[in-house]
């Protein structure tokens, strides 16, 4: 564990708390992509299967349970409790275009051709693109509630912090994780447009609005 990794994890944790806070206080999941949230459930479940057969640390264990639990809870809130506030007609990104290629990539790029390793690779690739339905939705509506943009910013910053963490680990431990690094850089890259608007508008107190 190092400073960058910890900041990344805390940012990830914060993003989920902001998301749940947004749903609870506005009593609505307006502006959120159900598809993106469903992809995160798939990401966490396929990645954290090792919970059942491998002990890393209490920190690791608690965080994994939290990510699985909170993503399932979010899905439940969106699907049932605040269902009427979700508008499927603007959440139209085809997730087959994400899941299929990620599955193929995982079959090609993995550290061992075993079920758990292929699923782990799949989760890494899928996480890198899971935000696309949400960003696509944002692009369509052209605006977002401020709280939703805070959620997206925290979620984007999380993987960005993992990049210096990987560099640090390379120099201190001499290890690399090429699959996570390539996917993590791609994942962070997808947020660049969003970050630009977030830091130049929302952080200056303006509303998040995309140019027409």
């Amino acid at each position: 564990m190092n400073f960058f990794r910890l900041l990344g994890d805390l940012s990830h944790l914060a993003s989920i708390l902001i998301l749940l806070h947004k749903i609870k206080t506005t009593r609505s999941c307006r502006g959120l992509s159900f598809k993106t949230q469903a992809l995160y459930v798939a990401v966490f479940i396929t990645r954290y299967l090792d919970l059942t057969y491998r002990w890393v640390s209490l920190y690791n264990f608690v965080m994994k349970l939290f990510f699985i639990g909170s993503s399932c809870a979010t899905l439940y809130l969106m699907r049932y409790k605040y269902c009427p506030t979700h508008d499927p007609s603007i959440d139209t990104f085809k997730i087959e275009y994400l899941v299929g290629p990620c599955a193929i990539l995982a079959l090609i790029f993995n550290y061992k051709f075993s079920v758990s390793e292929v699923l782990w690779s799949f989760s890494i690739f899928l996480e890198s693109v899971a935000i696309l339905p949400q960003l696509f939705m944002l692009q369509r509506t052209g605006e977002a509630e401020t709280i939703t943009t805070h959620y997206l910013a925290a979620l984007g910053i999380y993987r960005a912090f993992y990049i210096p963490n990987w560099i640090y680990r390379y120099f201190t431990e001499g290890v690399v994780d090429p699959i996570a690094i390539v996917a993590g850089i791609a994942q962070t890259g997808l947020y660049l447009d969003f970050f630009y608007v977030y830091f130049t508008k929302v952080m200056q107190g303006e509303k998040f609005e995309l140019p027409a």
Partner: peptide, 10 residues
């Protein structure tokens, strides 16, 4: 380069 074998990241 040695690849991380025991995955400890989230």
């Amino acid at each position: 380069l040695p690849v991380v074998t025991e995955k400890d990241e989230l």
